[in-house]
């Protein structure tokens, strides 16, 4: 991993984030330095309230840092205009969350297709809808949900919802997948299954994954674990892959 001068897929340097409630300033991130190499599966661990989610939101351009810089494929992304950030989230960075965050009005396959629909106008979507649908079906097969295409989220179990969310995050073939406690709401076994899906994607498709988790068991499944404490990244410990 330290052969040539490698370019990180994602890098954060000196990232700071302060929440202010009136006069009270609450610094959550106080200068996070952090690199992710292409093809890595990194887990971020830390106490509740240590700012893991906050960091992930900054990396995923859902929020802007108060200081520091974030680079994606060598390009600075933390100060991009809204349109650029929308495109980034739509095509290059996949996001999955603890509470799945599926759209309740849409079926499984429609949820998976949502990013594609957001990208395309009615006409260009309609012209290629077969192709997109095939792709969504294939993805759902990959995550093991090929048989529940037309169910609404409320008819699915937690594990199934998270699989749907993963398929949705992958529909645009992103280079990077950011996952915020993807197993946090699932029982041990289901959590392991989700982790297995992520590991397989990482191994087979060389997908770079950054995963926030509480669970040391899950964290152990990653190539590398990053500890977040007191607003900074603590000494990183290498995990045996």
């Amino acid at each position: 991993m330290s052969t040539t001068k490698y370019q990180p897929l994602l890098s954060a340097s000196g990232v700071r984030k302060v929440y202010s409630k009136g006069e009270v300033k609450l610094p959550v991130l106080k200068g996070v330095d952090f690199n992710v190499a292409p093809g890595e599966l990194v887990s971020i661990v830390g106490q509740s309230g240590s700012g893991k989610s906050t960091l992930l939101h900054l990396l995923g351009t859902l929020d802007r840092p108060d200081g520091g810089e974030i680079y994606f494929e060598g390009n600075r992304i933390d100060n991009l205009a809204a349109a650029g950030r929308d495109i980034l989230r739509n095509r290059h960075i996949g996001l999955i969350f603890q509470f799945y965050h599926l759209l309740p009005e849409l079926t499984t396959i429609e949820n998976v297709l949502a990013p594609v629909m957001i990208r395309h106008s009615v006409l260009s979507y309609w012209a290629k809808r077969r192709e997109y649908q095939e792709r969504a079906k294939a993805l759902l097969e990959t995550v093991g949900l090929g048989h529940r295409l037309n169910h609404k989220p409320r008819e699915l179990s937690g594990g199934e919802m998270q699989r749907t969310a993963i398929a949705r995050a992958l529909i645009s073939e992103p280079q990077l997948l950011l996952a915020d406690e993807p197993t946090g709401n699932l029982d041990r076994q289901t959590g392991d299954e989700i982790l297995e899906v992520l590991r397989r994607l990482n191994a087979e498709q060389n997908l770079t994954i950054v995963m926030v988790t509480h669970d040391p068991n899950i964290a152990a499944g990653a190539d590398r674990t990053v500890h977040l404490a007191e607003g900074r990244v603590q000494a990183a410990s290498q995990a045996a892959a």
């Binding site: 859902l62 929308d86 009005e105 990013p115 957001i118």
Partner: peptide, 16 residues
């Protein structure tokens, strides 16, 4: 509200 957040996290613009 949550759906709006989801759509934005999937890259939907404010205008959208």
């Amino acid at each position: 509200t949550r759906d709006i957040g989801i759509l934005k996290s999937l890259g939907a613009s404010s205008e959208g």
